[in-house]
Design a protein around this nucleic acid. Sequence first.
DNA 1: AAAATAGTGTCTCTGAGACAATATGAT
DNA 2: ATCATATTGTCTCAGAGACACTATTTT
Lengths: 295, 295
Amino acid sequence: MDLLDKDGLTESEFLKQYKAGDYERPSVTTDMVIFTVTEDEADSYRKLPEKELRVLLIRRGAHPFLSKWALPGGFVRPNETTEQAAVRELCEETGVEDVYLEQLYTFSDIGRDPRTWVISCSYMALINSDKLELKAGDDAADAAWFKVSYRPLREQKELIVDGYIKTLEYELKLSSEEEELSAVVARTMTAKTTSTGTDYEIVSNDGLAFDHAKIIACAIDRLRGKVNYTDIALHLMPKLFTLTELQQVYEVIMDKELLKAAFRRKVADLVVETDHYTENAGHRPSRLYRRNLEG
Amino acid sequence: MDLLDKDGLTESEFLKQYKAGDYERPSVTTDMVIFTVTEDEADSYRKLPEKELRVLLIRRGAHPFLSKWALPGGFVRPNETTEQAAVRELCEETGVEDVYLEQLYTFSDIGRDPRTWVISCSYMALINSDKLELKAGDDAADAAWFKVSYRPLREQKELIVDGYIKTLEYELKLSSEEEELSAVVARTMTAKTTSTGTDYEIVSNDGLAFDHAKIIACAIDRLRGKVNYTDIALHLMPKLFTLTELQQVYEVIMDKELLKAAFRRKVADLVVETDHYTENAGHRPSRLYRRNLEG
DNA sequence: AAAATAGTGTCTCTGAGACAATATGAT
DNA sequence: ATCATATTGTCTCAGAGACACTATTTT
């Protein structure tokens, strides 16, 4: 096809002479919300340990937000996609490849990075506890897994002309062995007869860098939403697991207790039973399952 | 807080002396998938007209992809968010403000724009047929609303080590009064014991610019997904509408016929009845409803 | 009366919630 | 025998699917 444009150029001629304009361009980064599930120390070895949802944060060693905790991430380089950048970051920080990865949201608020114009394309990754052990081999001394708590704090509904504004505030608490961070994030839904929109805002923030409280909140909301109608939670499980362990993972994600019988019916199609059982648990052994790839 | 970094600078000192590096940065654009629903000409005035899902495209007047059809969009400018850029583009192209807007996905494949490195943050907008009339006032002579058809074409499942690859091909057909475009887009799901990923690919493409077939496919998938568990479809309705009209909109989005009784039960909480009725329809009048803001 | 659509009734089946009962290995 | 968890059974209730019936206006 040799269509000519208004300057009489073919497409290949046009591309040859094309020069990128000198208007300002943003930096583009990826920020990764990397989740895993760990077990706390059990009170007694006969009792089951409780599961904890954890997210990886890195202490900043430079301005801005020096010594605050930030999501792992970095600049997207030429000749790589945002997803490739995310995979690269993930591998650098955790030494783990081949995990569940999902694009979350692209954040572009002006001033979100005090240095310069930075747009961040965020990703969520889920790592199972098998792989987590590999992580010991990374060099970032100032990386830590923070236990996640994300609970509704306040709900508010304000009527406006032709609609309403609903604000849901969540308290985000992140705790590692040494440190406790917290933030309050508000999800605002504006509903008018014509339009509707949802927006995250940081109400308060203690210890997190940039707008990362927002990004983490966004990731948890996504994870909670998807847990109920996909097999996403199975990516947090090791190769073999018991149904009770799986239920604990669902519970720690949803922050809500579930009924055993109903849960087992619900996940029945997501798993396949094996012939293996737990051993020496101090009580009746439990059948081990694996993920069913026939989702 | 006056923490000093390794150069002995405070945060504000650091920011004052900060100079953006001279590494390469991408251009960032927004692309808008703007949907609306229109009615075709009815065969007889006594029969109800059928609904059509339509998307706005603009014929390119310059290289690259000269004379192909593209989604409305443009560069994100400094001091605006991607969302603000989307609102601006939407208003420029359709003269419409205050509509449903949702971020879709950020596309960053290398080479997606043959000119230079361009990352696109895509948005979906839903416009109701009331507002559509305003659109006559826009200047883009080469803009047109294309009727959308998006149907499964082929399904393929390939077993690999530790998992499988499932490919779902869809045929995307876009037709305006004068022109018919078509493309085949494949959604590939790779499931392995550890990871899972979904990816869009353009298999064939006749008449669409850039990777816009992918973006449109992504938008339709999102719209179809959300129709069933949100009130998103109501943003395509005028202020007052009949339940049959609403059902037709659901049907044209899902490309599937629904049962009347079940449909009415399902949307009962999404709408509020009014005291108005249709008139002079050639048959029994129908009660008019409006959107229920108590989602 | 016929055409065309509007609106309602009801039977069945499935799936979630709730709770109870039984099973099994470790101590 | 007791502890602690594993696993299954079943009753109920709510919602979706399927189909049929009645209602109302215009021609």
